[in-house]
């Protein structure tokens, strides 16, 4: 007994590096940012306390609101097709008769390991209206007659950004779903097959309900990730009328392009607040679901 108590202090030692590093590189900057959000620091002079002026500016900042709107639109446009596609592919690739499973999984997953910055630049080039191959292909096929200036239309730009995001993540979600599917005991399927259930019935009555926790997990992570969307859209650009400026892009541009560090810190806190609300809502949702089950 004495021995165990004696050893338990090692627990502190083992978890200490996490807390020390987090205090220095995580918490301290966050608190410091809070202080900066009450200043007018611009990089050229020392920070001066200006009270709540940055936050007042923020609640009147229509561009920030627009960036929130953009982020949500892009998230919705990407997450719905992404999750449905990932789910459909996961179910198909979990079927027994499919050959070359590994090949398909690998190919579908591949876009996820390419750096988002690279993908952003790649799609920026491919959709360039003068030199990009998308217009050339469409014109060659006779679908369009004059090149389409994709990034000149707010909605087309958003759709492209959403598509790139979807393209990047559907493979990952597919793997997660496959993992979920593999966790479903085989006996259930076998029993259902013996009972003569149709394939469709098996999917809707067994697969999907059992996959619900995994679906919820994907959904929550995609909200938190989606609200922080940054690198890819940054490379594609702001779009016409700032239509593809996401929240984090706005933060980056305010702070590190226009040197409004103080205001940028306030924007960062606003983003945090939004993400917090959505995380809480989605957690509540998933808890309710668990209770139901």
């Amino acid at each position: 007994m004495r021995n165990a108590i004696n050893k338990s202090r090692y627990g502190y030692y083992f978890v200490a590096p996490f807390f020390i590093t987090f205090l220095i590189f995580g918490l301290a900057p966050i608190i410091y940012s809070l202080y900066l959000s009450f200043t007018n620091w611009d990089g050229f002079t020392d920070p001066v306390n200006i009270g709540f002026a940055n936050y007042e500016r923020l609640i009147h900042d229509s561009f920030f609101f627009k960036s929130i709107f953009n982020t949500f639109i892009i998230w919705i446009l990407s997450v719905i097709p992404q999750v449905s596609l990932a789910l459909a592919l996961a179910i198909i690739l979990n079927e027994r008769f499919i050959r070359g499973k590994h090949f398909f999984r690998a190919v579908f997953y591949f876009p996820h390991i390419v750096t988002p910055v690279t993908l952003g630049v790649l799609f920026f080039l491919i959709f360039d209206w003068q030199t990009g191959s998308v217009n050339k292909v469409l014109m060659e096929l006779g679908i369009i007659h004059a090149p389409v200036n994709w990034f000149n239309s707010p909605w087309l730009s958003r759709i492209i950004v959403a598509m790139v995001t979807m393209w990047q993540y559907f493979g990952l979600n597919m793997l997660i779903f496959i993992a979920g599917l593999q966790a479903i005991p085989n006996e259930l399927y076998e029993a259902a097959e013996i009972d003569g259930a149709s394939r469709w019935k098996i999917i809707t009555k067994i697969t999907l309900p059992l996959l619900k926790p995994v679906l919820m997990f994907t959904f929550i992570t995609s909200i938190i990730g989606g609200l922080q969307l940054f690198d890819g859209p940054l490379m594609i650009g702001n779009g016409p009328d700032n239509s593809t400026t996401t929240m984090v892009m706005y933060l980056y541009q305010t702070a590190f392009k226009n040197f409004n560090y103080g205001y940028g810190a306030a924007v960062a806190y606003a983003i945090f607040f939004i993400i917090l609300i959505f995380s809480l809502i989605s957690i509540k949702f998933s808890k309710l679901n668990k209770v139901e089950q």
Partner: peptide
């Protein structure tokens, strides 16, 4: 979110 403290960082 990782961006929260970025300016203070």
């Amino acid at each position: 979110p990782s961006q929260l403290g970025i300016i203070g960082f």
